[in-house]
Amino acid sequence: MNTDEETLKRRRDKFSKEATLQIRNDLLRDAALLSRSSSDANLETIINDYAAREKIVRELEQLFQSRDNDALLEHGLRKLREVIVRRSSSDYKNDSKFVAQIHKIYSMSYEFYLGKNNTKLYSILQFLYEQFPGLKNEDGYSYDDVLIIFCSHISKDIYECLQVARSSISKSSMLLVQLSLIYTDRIDSSASWFEILARFRQDSLIYQFLERTKIIAEMELRCLNDCNLVYRQISLKAVERVWYHNLPIVESDDELRKKWKGSVIINSKEEMILMRKK
């Protein structure tokens, strides 16, 4: 090996060692997780040092806003959730700063997994329900409400839905039970489901959850099927007003045409008319 090659190799080795050391000293990028390691100096620092956790939280908040490295964001959120679960609730229930960190971490985790991973989303909601009953997001909406709807609309478990609702301190719990029973047991028309949904602001946790998990689109289709049974013909505007209660339609007009079982015509007023399948 000539001198130039030896010099280049030394530089590469030095860079590799420095990069490895830098990653090991970076609490966020360090690959260690409590679920994989019983003892690790970096993890012990995160468990016991508020400032170290807060530094990671701030980095995660920046990643959450930019969304330019979702893999690192997910890794960091998981790392901190495992630290929280490892700590006894008696350790943090009286520590307001730690509780504030927990709320930030789980709020970001909820938003990250919403519409992506229902299994992890359920574990996040379950933790908040058990450890912080009645917890609300920054806009004042309760995560307990979301768990009620998750149990009925995603898990299809009306028994657990009712259990959560009974113990919930949310003022919306009984309304959400009605929404759930319409969805699971069809105790009322699909139009009534949208009537209840219309009582929630479109930026609420409930509305956003149902939209991003495609439940609203599913209920729109159920409405169309009900309309096909009830009407010989009906305008799309009437469906929007009477059945969807003027809520924004998730599906485009073209998608609605495809899903409507009958024919579609455009009348002289350029309104879309849905005709019953013969």
Rank of each mutant, 00 (worst) to 15 (best):
D188G: 01
M275T: 06
V177C: 04
S38D: 10
Y50H: 13
R10T: 09
H103D: 08
F200T: 07
I196Y: 07
M108K: 02
R24Q: 15
R36Y: 08
K14Y: 10
V99M: 14
Y159T: 12
A52L: 05
K258E: 14
H153C: 12
S204P: 07
L77Y: 03
M174W: 14
I206G: 02
Y113R: 07
V230R: 13
Q202R: 14
L229D: 11
S90T: 15
S155P: 02
P133Q: 05
S173K: 15
S16I: 11
I182S: 02
K17D: 11
K120H: 14
I216Y: 03
Y122Q: 08
V230Y: 14
S39C: 07
K116P: 00
S167D: 12
N48C: 05
R276S: 07
L176F: 03
E138N: 15
A19R: 10
Y143Q: 04
L197A: 05
F112I: 04
I265A: 09
W193A: 04
K9Y: 10
F150M: 05
F15P: 00
S180C: 04
V177T: 02
S38N: 11
F132D: 04
N69Y: 03
S89I: 13
L33H: 12
L28R: 01
K104E: 13
C151G: 00
W260E: 06
L221W: 09
L247Q: 11
A100W: 09
Q131K: 12
R29V: 00
E130W: 06
R257G: 01
E160N: 13
Q131H: 12
V85S: 08
Y50D: 05
A217K: 14
N118V: 11
R24F: 12
R11T: 08
C161D: 01
N2P: 01
L34H: 11
P248C: 08
S252E: 11
E54L: 12
F15L: 14
L28A: 03
I234E: 05
D253N: 13
F150W: 10
D185G: 00
I23Q: 12
E160Y: 13
F150V: 06
K261P: 00
D145A: 06
L210V: 02
K258S: 10
I196L: 09
K104W: 07
A51W: 10
Q233D: 14
L27S: 09
V242T: 14
R24M: 12
W193N: 01
G140S: 04
I215T: 06
V146W: 05
K97D: 11
E6T: 10
A217P: 03
H245N: 14
F15G: 00
R58P: 00
C161H: 02
Q126W: 15
E251I: 05
D185M: 11
I84Y: 04
K237Y: 12
R87C: 09
K156N: 15
K120P: 00
Q131M: 12
R201E: 15
L21K: 15
L221Q: 10
N118Y: 15
F112V: 03
H245D: 04
Y50P: 00
K278R: 13
K120V: 08
I56G: 08
W260A: 06
T7V: 13
R53H: 10
K97Y: 11
L176R: 03
D144Q: 02
I102W: 02
E211N: 11
V242C: 07
R11V: 09
D226G: 04
I215E: 04
D49A: 05
